[in-house]
Design a protein around this nucleic acid. Structure first.
Lengths: 406, 406
DNA sequence: GACAGTAATTTCGATTTCAAAATAATACCC
DNA sequence: GGGTATTATTTTGAAATCGAAATTACTGTC
């Protein structure tokens, strides 16, 4: 399907950007391989590559010992000194930022804590502060900034539309504001979707064209990649499975009567976020403590946090483990439903639960297998990208959307 | 994003096909409007349109009284005499076929009944018979054949991979076979997806870029349109929500104990197809009769059919109605889940239940609204295309995929 | 070490597509 | 009825891209 681009010059820049993307994704390509990949004539690929080499975005490298006959290809790699990109990822509690060089190697990463009481303005200030820190101390120019924003965004106007958990976070013209402040292009994306991009380019989704990344943090959402592209939906709200109505395992039920029978239960209007998110786990743990469950969590001083529950589970506490397993079973159901609807190659779980490894993953897989035959074709894995996941994805977003000037 | 096509000539044909698609979708466009739509220079659009007019695929028409200043545009319409396309749609019980002219006006439609005992070979023969009937009696050449196939297909090799309800229906090289027999290009698509295409081009999905069509027949599946394109998934199995694990309303529960409390219930492993498909309705009705439910269905002689239940519901029988409403509630839940995940502009229900109108739709909408706030942005409708839905979609598939020879 | 074989890249018109300017066909105003 | 504004289409020369034919830089063989 041909998709034409407005002006001829814009089109040229788009093609150059596409070449850069390929080279980054698959380091060490030759002109001919690029031509084949992008369905260009070899001569055309040559013209563009030469231009990019001359502009300092690509480097020609010697390639190591070769076996085959024929003129050896000249391998191309992105020039690390081509420029830098900054990625920021935040939600209600945390802000992560990273800088990467032109070959997408991370240079530096920082983490800032946000207070739940911070206003939109204060958070904006902290974002700008973080970006400032990342810009400093380097001769290579910053070419773009990517931001993973919680809640809904409008990628056309680059406005952050709304997020429940920050006061006054409505219609924030984030793109415009940062663009003016720093004088470089700014790219926004929803934050679970930028995590999915990180998986697509660096993580478990590398090389795949169809996968789903499910992020479990305070809320739950999915980033869906179809044909190598992120799914946005009609109003950029695709993937909000936190509002899915789901079954509730006994361990996570709120009322005593619901806990009584061991089976899963349909509870009118039970939302996935209220059943199987990090905050739901904390709430369930607290209910357990009120019931005087036998658990080392009882010794925790002060407010119970999700880290308490997860480390306790990791150390083998039976109660904490039972919560993790129950949540895993719910997400096994989620994986099954998602698999039947999308038929992806892989489902990737991201967030602190994924860091627990098999403690979380085993019940997910087991439940998914019980529910569907198709489960056998499906790979379910934990993300291994860690907590800078979203920031790296945001930086990569900027890097991929950016186009060389002509 | 530029997508380049192999050979230059193939690309030209692709562009011509794209122009034809636009003109058909939006009859009466001018050269300039086409150029704007496809982001071509007006001069380029002119060249291609001229070629298509000369080839007899487009007609220039006088346009009626105009108001605005400026040179009036010359409207373009597809030439009905450009050729014909045949569409076939079948599942275990029925086969529908249609011919449409080049402007996608249906010329003739036929319906054949299939026996559950028919073998793959017999069904193949009936398909060829139906196509033969559609080819006859017309001077305009048949340019392509589209087939809506039940079960999984491989659109690359044009092989029908598998379908449970026809004996021996595995790896049928349908595309190759029909192509050799009739000497024209053959295009395959899964059944429900061709219904979604019909909605996209002629029905409730016209002009939309994101919607979901849910087909309720013997099984249940969804055809998902994202950015104006059908979703296929990694193994062409996307949309198989018939295997979703869903809640079960009391009216549809199988066991007496499950029926006891009025609430919905989570039943381990209850699959949507076993709960809320046409066959599930018949089964639930039969269970009701065994319980000696008061209903006019008790008077039906012979095997109970889905038509019996639906007409009885339409006539106001309280028991039959309760089944329809319960199924409607389940699909309200389905609509909610689909909406949260895809964020489509519309959800369209197709199949015999949709023909019941509000009897079915009201409980769907009510449940969807109860479950999610987002439901307010969402339009849920019944298909109005009737039973030739799939066949028309298959014909349109051929028409849209077909490219003029150069 | 010359020579064939092979694959990558470059060269060289030819074709496609573009942007901008010129032309055509209408409505509206006086 | 003639001039002006407006929009659609066509013309025109230039830029992008192509396909095929050199050319280049290797490996392997005698």
């Amino acid at each position: 399907m041909p998709r034409r681009i407005k002006s001829k010059h814009q089109h040229v820049a788009t093609l150059e950007a596409e070449l850069l993307r390929r080279v980054r994704a698959h380091g060490g390509l030759s002109r001919v391989q690029l031509a084949r990949d992008l369905k260009l004539a070899p001569s055309t690929a040559g013209i563009y590559v030469d231009r990019l080499v001359r502009a300092g975005f690509l480097l020609e490298t010697e390639n190591a010992g070769r076996e085959t006959a024929g003129r050896p290809p000249t391998s191309l790699v992105p020039n690390p000194d081509g420029g830098r990109f900054i990625g920021v990822d935040f939600e209600a509690r945390n802000l992560m930022a990273t800088v990467v060089d032109f070959s997408q190697q991370p240079l530096r990463q920082i983490h800032k804590t946000l207070r739940p009481t911070d206003s939109a303005g204060q958070i904006l200030a902290k974002i700008e502060l973080a970006i400032n820190e990342m810009m400093a101390r380097d001769s290579r120019p910053v070419l773009g900034i990517g931001v993973g924003v919680p809640g809904a965004i409008d990628p056309v106007t680059n406005v952050a539309v709304h997020y429940d958990f920050i006061k006054g976070w409505s219609d924030v013209p984030l793109g415009e504001r940062l663009g003016e402040r720093f004088g470089v292009p700014v790219f926004l994306e929803n934050n679970i979707r930028s995590m999915a991009l990180a998986e697509l380019w660096f993580g478990a989704g590398r090389g795949l064209r169809n996968f789903v990344c499910i992020g479990i943090r305070s809320g739950i959402a999915a980033g869906v990649v179809v044909n190598g592209q992120l799914l946005h939906g009609a109003h950029h709200r695709a993937g909000e499975i936190g509002h899915w109505v789901c079954p509730v395992p006994a361990e996570l039920a709120e009322t005593a009567s619901a806990r009584r029978n061991g089976e899963w239960r349909w509870q009118a209007g039970a939302k996935l976020e209220q059943v199987a998110s990090l905050s739901a786990i904390v709430a369930a743990a607290q209910r357990g403590l009120e019931r005087r469950q036998k658990t080392v969590l009882a010794d925790v001083k002060g407010e119970l946090t999700i880290d308490d529950v997860l480390t306790t589970a990791h150390d083998g506490d039976e109660f904490a483990l039972s919560l993790v397993r129950a949540v895993g079973r719910v997400h096994g159901w989620v994986a099954h439903q998602v698999n039947e609807l999308f038929n992806p190659e892989k489902i990737i779980f991201a967030g602190p639960l994924a860091d627990l490894g098999n403690l979380f993953l085993a019940p997910v897989r087991e439940t998914a297998r019980e529910l569907g035959d198709a489960g056998r074709n499906l790979t379910i894995v934990n993300s291994t990208l860690g907590q800078y996941n979203g920031a790296v994805g945001a930086a990569a977003l900027a890097l991929h959307q950016w186009k060389p000037k002509r």
